[in-house]
Lab assay of single mutants.
Amino acid sequence: MIFPGATVRVTNVDDTYYRFEGLVQRVSDGKAAVLFENGNWDKLVTFRLSELEAVK
C-alpha cells in the first residue's frame, strides 16, 4: 500500500522517470503525486498507482 510520505520507485519502463525514486505527496483516484528532488530542482509528477512500487 502506498501512502503520503512513502518513498516510491517508478516501475513503468516506458516512462521518462523509470527507476527514479521520490516522495509521495498525495494519493487519490488511483493516482499518486510524487515529488522528485535533485540538487537545485524539484518536480511533482502524477503516476497511476500501478506504475509505482514502495521502496523498502
Rank of each mutant, 00 (worst) to 15 (best):
W41Q: 11
V10Y: 01
V13P: 15
A54D: 06
N40I: 10
V34R: 00
A54Y: 13
E53Y: 06
F20I: 07
N40E: 11
F3P: 03
V13K: 13
K56Q: 13
N38W: 13
E21D: 04
F47I: 05
M1R: 12
V27Q: 02
I2G: 01
D15F: 04
V55A: 05
G22K: 00
N38P: 08
T46N: 08
D14T: 11
V45Y: 05
N12Y: 04
E21A: 07
F47S: 02
V34W: 02
L35M: 08
K31F: 14
V13Q: 11
A33I: 15
L49Q: 04
V27A: 03
V45P: 06
T46D: 08
R48Q: 13
V27R: 02
A33S: 12
V34N: 00
R48G: 10
S50M: 07
F20P: 00
Q25T: 13
T11G: 04
I2S: 02
G22S: 01
S28Q: 11
A6W: 08
E53C: 08
I2T: 02
G39I: 08
G5D: 02
K56L: 13
A33L: 15
L23A: 06
S50W: 13
E53K: 07
K56C: 12
V13F: 07
V13W: 06
L23W: 07
I2E: 01
I2V: 06
A33F: 14
Q25A: 09
A32V: 10
G22Q: 01
G5P: 01
F36V: 04
D15Q: 08
K43Q: 11
L23E: 07
G30N: 07
T7K: 14
A32D: 00
Q25E: 07
N38H: 13
G22V: 03
F20A: 09
V8M: 02
V34I: 07
L23R: 12
G39E: 09
K31R: 11
D15P: 03
V34D: 00
V34H: 01
S50I: 08
E37L: 13
T7S: 07
L35T: 05
G5A: 02
K31D: 06
Y17E: 02
L44I: 12
R48P: 12
Y18N: 03
F3M: 10
A6D: 13
A32Q: 01
W41S: 10
V8Q: 00
F47N: 01
